[in-house]
Amino acid sequence: MGDETRQREALLEAIENIADRIDNEKKHLTDLDSAIGDADHGANLNRGFKAVMEKIKDMDDDADVQEITKTVGMTLVSEVGGAAGPLYGGSTMTASTELADGITAESSVAFAEAFLEKLQDRGDARVGDKTMIDAITPAVHTYKKSIEQDDLPPLEALAKAVDAAERGVEFTVPIRASKGRASFLGWRSTGHQDPGATSTLFILEEILKTAEQYLEGDTDVDATSPTIPDEEPDELEEE
């Protein structure tokens, strides 16, 4: 994506869109959390993103995208108060270093991977535990594959990632929680959609919505592979 100013503008717009979305969905998220958790996910995230908006307003005009992203992470860590603080905030802080040279297809994949790695490390959760990992893991893997292997334009890769996250959220409904507060409910956690996976999807949807204003490409996609992989993978070239 274009020059520094434009990247910065896109990033700030994405953050604002996320903050607005969380504000609009706070009751929805808290309702999901009251079914299987401690009924604070919406309120906690909303407090965090409100604080982020305040912090960002006070930042220097020449702050770069890495600095802005790191500030978002630090503010979420301080203000969210629930597990979502260290999970979203801590992972954003760690991954922000990948944006030192700006936002490119390459650096955004590196950011996504670093974010996922930190999230797994901090939360100690795996796919199938009924957590935000169930939404973010397929999204990150789909994004990476779409960029690095299928050579898709970033906007299309992002649209596929969002589609994958949506499937991940649906996947949390029938399964039993084995991490987080919902795990205390055992089988009673089945049949409920995970609030953390849901907020992850909302955030990704807002990033996509913002990217549509700034990037060219097709967003009418689904994450299922349009091509059947070759039966024999290309042989590795020998050195």
Binding site: V77, G81, G82, A83, A84, G85, P86, L87, G89, G90, R122, G123
Partner: peptide, 8 residues
């Protein structure tokens, strides 16, 4: 979150 916030 007490565990995760303490770790962070």
């Amino acid at each position: 979150s007490a565990v995760m916030n303490a770790e962070t």
